[in-house]
Amino acid sequence: MSHDTTKQASGGLDVAVLVSVGRHPLTARARRADHDARAVELALGLEAARVRLIHAGRNDPDSEAALRDYLGMGFASLTRIDQPAGADVLPALLEALREAAPQLLFTGSRAETGEGSGLLPYLLGEALGWPVVTGIAAVESVEGGTATLLQALPRGQRRRLRVRLPALISVDEAGPAPRQSAYGPARRGTLSAETRPAETDDALAGWTLEPARARPKRLKIVKASSARERFKAAAAKAEGGGGQVLTDVTPEQGAEAIFTLLKEEGVLRH
């Protein structure tokens, strides 16, 4: 039934995925974090790998429901390192990872709650002494202590990377779309709790975290050197309000107008 059991039989690669409790951007409901779920999906796509899930964080009903969403992707269990609210999970995670000693560690690129600075993968990599690669969209192969990966570049472009194992792979929205979380396995799976020493994150406690303010829209600053130009800028018609319609033009004129717009927007490649 579960992927991990089938994969365990064949032995081979040891893989761990760090998962966190996400938060829906509109409703703020707890859910599996998008990037983490993609990381899990990427790990599940590996041939002959033992995949285990590790989470460090608070133990409350909301997070349990979210963590079960990961189990619903086909796992029998998930290791939950219980940490109090406001704890710095890095020491506990490091300890757990040193014990588990996976060859590949997958993480999302940043958390959806709390500070969400995206520093954790690098901190782990630095502390464990592992190379960190980011924005990975696919794992092509893992052979002879080297993983061949595809890194996502803007506009859907890809770059091939080879990285020495053990390595840490962080996944963002370019990762593969996570599979559906099924209710049955999510309900059945077990969350095995581990207790590890917790350290409070004092720095974070001293900072203010508040709902995001809308950022001011940048105004078009007109460096006018004359009154006329200032007047023109002030009196310029606001953009929008019905676009330009070209009727009775030759295809070439029409194409020229479109071409100009595409150039202005900078979407044409050179």
């Binding site: 019905g242 676009g243 330009q244 295809p251 029409g254 194409a255 020229e256 071409f259 044409l268």
Partner: peptide, 22 residues
């Protein structure tokens, strides 16, 4: 009505001209 720029004409011909221009 929605478009910021609209060109009225035969799509095939305009696309061809646009390709040539690019």
């Amino acid at each position: 009505k929605r478009a910021d720029l609209a060109v009225i004409g035969d799509a095939g011909a305009i696309l061809e001209a646009l390709v040539a221009r690019v």
